[in-house]
Design a protein around this nucleic acid. Structure first.
Lengths: 325, 325
DNA sequence: CTGAAAGCGCTTACAG
DNA sequence: CTGAAAGCGCTTACAG
């Protein structure tokens, strides 16, 4: 391994000078810089991030914690974050968890490596995990989730507004008997989508039934099959995310229930598969790019200077009309 | 930040003793251990991985490089790796790339952080990237890919054997006019699947046409549409991966071509969606768990002691018969 | 088994 | 602008 000392000797300068060439903001003469870079290139030198981080006490690593990686929405999110952070010189430490509520041990590894910041895309936080973020002053963004305490910055789609607009849209289409299929009941997204939707329909005195599910394809498929067995087919479904909506569509089609004639289906997310011809699902497009940008801007400013500022940011998104309505 | 020195003072022992409690393999008396652990707990101490790694010159981080994260096969692989490595005390640094051939700058970040090992799931390597792995003696596994030089350990499905078995299966089903839809032409997987398949059909004098595509849903959909337009429908398709096969199925169904009566379709991977009712795709199941295990075992032994040993490991998998054949 | 000390590869005041 | 030196939080010979 080539160190700054090796380069220094080879270039005939001090080790500090080598360090200054690679440290943004430090001042070095053009001549020194040149000598150092030439020597570094010849020797194949690269600064050791670990040593660097030991001093600055922070790495250029962002931790991303995901649960629902089976849902195509999240790989897309991961890709977007990885690309954006790479351009800013940050690397991604990926954590997968099975827990709805992030536990201390899920994120221990992130703290051990002194990550610069953390993004949790689709899970809530246990109390002791919350404590740790506060205590170690690690910037955190809840992506696509909120927590009740409002202790942390969150970036979500405007679920309330979106679900209201969806309700109005279905009313305009003439629906009078509607079913909402919820995702995991304890998630903020599912609750908010339910709330906005319910509010509008109530005002218009339109019948609404609500069934719980779990944000998976199988969950959507199962609940729809059950409804079909009970011949309880409404004239429209609002399903809390796309992957469940695809399950609903498949169950309906298997029973040859004509869409959108007999019943309509609307999802949420606008995952890639929603646009596939056999589905062609009407859905609410979450503006991933905008959500990612908001997250990154906040994280970068908190990394620059930690304030612990918390806010629930919401971005709008848009209804994408396809063939299921 | 609480350091080993703080704990040492609080516990009335030396800093070395604190270190020994947290360093596997070091010897400490039960009494000292107890005192240290008590003090550590009280103060909320956790060893700084960065300082640790600076000395041992290796982190407990595994780099995973992915390209085709849109293909549901890979998120599943990522999940499996993350879970397995976590249980071994290793963290995952995730790198997304757009390049078919990994470039030096794609993996710079991994070298800067002195990762213990690297997995590349679905891409090839540029020459200078190869050099770096050799030079810095970083263990590397090519997962689901081989490179021509055979310089590195690779773990793949037995593509040759699998495609031969698929060919025999289709022959047994009475197919006499078959089309193979290839993935990215320069990938080892697509080439091998083509080779095994071709070999068997040739021996049996069965007509085979080959069309190139790109391992995406859209690619499969497009090529099938084109064939439909040319009324060039064979009695069976072998499609180089599942996600393309779903595109083929959708195009066929849109034109009301009955499956498996008029034509049969077989994919490769056994992604989750292959089992969804509207697809119910016959496919070759890649044994992800076994492939991951082989990868991990190799990586761990190379991390223990670097040998640079290279081999192309192949695991078998199995044909999963569903409704498209 | 334990402590004092050197050192991993850097950054960063401090002089000059 | 540059160099010598201290120090980040650990591991690891070396004595005892």
């Amino acid at each position: 391994m080539i160190t700054a000392m090796d380069v220094a000797k080879h270039a005939g300068v001090s080790q500090s000078s080598v360090s200054r060439v690679y440290f943004e903001g430090a001042t070095v003469s053009a001549k020194t810089r040149e000598k150092v870079l030439a020597a570094a290139k010849e020797l194949g030198y690269r600064p050791n991030e670990l040593a660097r981080s030991l001093i600055t006490n922070r790495t250029k690593i962002i931790g991303i914690v995901m649960k629902g990686i089976q849902n195509p929405f999240y790989p897309q999110v991961l890709k977007q974050f990885t690309t954006t952070f790479k351009s800013l010189g940050y690397s991604i430490m990926f954590v997968y968890t099975n827990n709805d509520e992030i536990q201390k041990e899920d994120i221990d590894t992130l703290f051990n490596y002194n990550v610069a910041g953390v993004i949790i895309t689709d899970a809530s936080l246990s109390l002791n995990a919350i404590e740790d973020f506060k205590k170690y002053k690690i910037p955190l963004v809840l992506f696509n989730r909120k927590i009740a305490s409002n202790d942390f910055y969150s970036v979500c789609c405007n679920n309330l507004g979106a679900s209201k607009e969806i309700a109005h849209y279905l009313i305009d289409k003439g629906s009078t008997d509607i079913i909402y299929i919820a995702g995991n009941q304890n998630t903020s997204t599912s609750k908010e989508r339910e709330q906005g939707f319910t509010e509008v329909l109530k005002k218009s005195n339109i019948s609404l039934d609500i069934f719980g599910s779990d944000y998976t394809y199988e969950g959507g498929y199962r609940i729809a099959q059950q409804l079909i067995n009970e011949t309880r087919i409404p004239d429209a479904f609002f399903v809390a995310n796309d992957i469940m909506a695809l399950g609903v569509l498949d169950a309906l089609r298997e029973s040859s229930i004509s869409i959108p004639k007999v019943t309509k289906v609307i999802g949420f997310d606008n995952i890639e598969m929603a646009s596939w011809p056999p589905y062609s699902l009407t859905t609410w497009a979450q503006p991933i790019n905008e959500m990612v940008d908001q997250t990154v801007v906040y994280l970068m400013s908190e990394i620059e200077e930690y304030t612990g500022f918390a806010e629930n940011v919401e971005v709008n998104g848009v209804l994408v009309e396809r063939k299921t309505t």
